[in-house]
């Protein structure tokens, strides 16, 4: 690590430690925590959709799996929260594995609609498996984590979640810059060519779903223990669509882009308070506008798989 890099990191760390100390408003702390949780969550979708090009519309199900697993283990079995969250990450990873399998046979928009169907079925199970999940009433009074007998308040939780977010971001960058990331992108850019080069397509597609699911499970576990109340309403297709919009707004395939998208789409409706009602409308409008004017997203560079080809005979919607 160069000296310049090191100073940058130290400065950033100091900033991250100091800033929450000066924020007095509970509301601002809450927003920062939500941004960090959504940041982790969207990194998972970035790996599935952005890196590997698997159009998943069921990401909220992984998020819900993480939340419910940890909440239920802690509330029903009295497990320590930290263990609950670790198991939540595992459970979401397993869900990713299970979901990854059947979707191997599907591409593009067919995959999108199949994952949407999985997400819906997951939601129906949450609502109808009353004896386990409390059905539509949800689970209230989930405990906040504590350390040495001190219950985490908002500021401490912010430190914790920001730390995790940084770890998740670093992990996502490591994945993206490694053999794994290059393999994912090879599959995304040309599946047939990747297979010719000896890449085991099925293995890596499932791996993408597992890793993406684990990110979402982590976010879900910490979400449940932060908001202390979860219900099936928090994990609907609207949430999956919002996550998708975050990825595309920031730039699919860029790692940092989706995080930017998450920051924008969490903060924007809150900053303009009249827009709270309009949140989903804004999400939809952004999706259409981004696709028309900048399909590679705010941070995206030359993303070939999203670019409109200029010099081709006019074809409607045909695959490249």
């Amino acid at each position: 690590m160069s000296k310049k890099r090191l100073t940058q990191y130290v400065l950033l760390a100091v900033l991250l430690v100091l800033v929450p100390q000066f924020v007095r408003s509970d509301y601002a702390l809450h927003l920062m925590i939500m941004v960090a949780i959504y940041g982790i969550l969207v990194l998972g979708l970035e790996i599935i959709l952005g890196q590997t090009g698997l159009f998943s519309l069921g990401h909220a199900a992984f998020f819900g799996m993480g939340s419910y697993t940890s909440a239920l283990l802690v509330m029903r079995l009295g497990m320590p929260i930290w263990l609950g969250i670790v198991l939540a990450v595992l459970a979401s990873g397993i869900l990713g594995f299970l979901l990854g399998f059947p979707t191997l046979r599907l591409r593009g928009d067919y995959l999108a609609i199949a994952t949407l169907g999985f997400g819906e079925i997951f939601g129906l199970i949450l609502v109808n498996w009353d004896s386990l999940t409390h059905g539509p009433m949800g689970i209230p009074g989930i405990t906040r984590p504590e350390i040495f007998g001190v219950v985490f308040d908002k500021r401490m939780y912010l430190y914790l979640i920001v730390l995790l977010f940084i770890l998740a971001l670093a992990a996502a960058f490591r994945i993206s810059n490694s053999f794994l990331g290059r393999t994912f992108r090879a599959i995304r850019d040309d599946e047939d060519a990747a297979e010719f080069l000896g890449i085991h397509i099925s293995k890596y597609k499932i791996l993408a779903f597992i890793i993406g699911g684990m990110f979402a499970g982590l976010a879900g576990g910490f979400y449940a223990h932060y908001v202390t109340f979860i219900s099936p309403d928090s994990f609907t297709y609207e949430d999956s669509e919002t996550l998708l919009a975050m990825v595309f707004l920031g730039g699919a395939g860029t790692v940092i882009g989706p995080v930017v998208g998450a920051v924008v789409l969490v903060l924007l409706p809150e900053l303009l308070s009249f827009m709270v009602q309009w949140r989903m409308l804004v999400v939809g409008v952004i999706m259409v506008l981004v696709m028309i004017f900048r399909p590679q997203g705010l941070m995206g560079g030359g993303m070939k798989f999203l670019k409109i080809k200029k010099k081709e005979v006019a074809r409607i919607g045909e695959k490249e």
């Binding site: 399909p295 081709e312 006019a314 074809r315 409607i316 919607g317 045909e318 695959k319």
Partner: peptide
């Protein structure tokens, strides 16, 4: 988006 990839449409 007539000439865009299907994912985009």
């Amino acid at each position: 988006l007539r000439r865009a990839p299907r994912l985009v449409v």
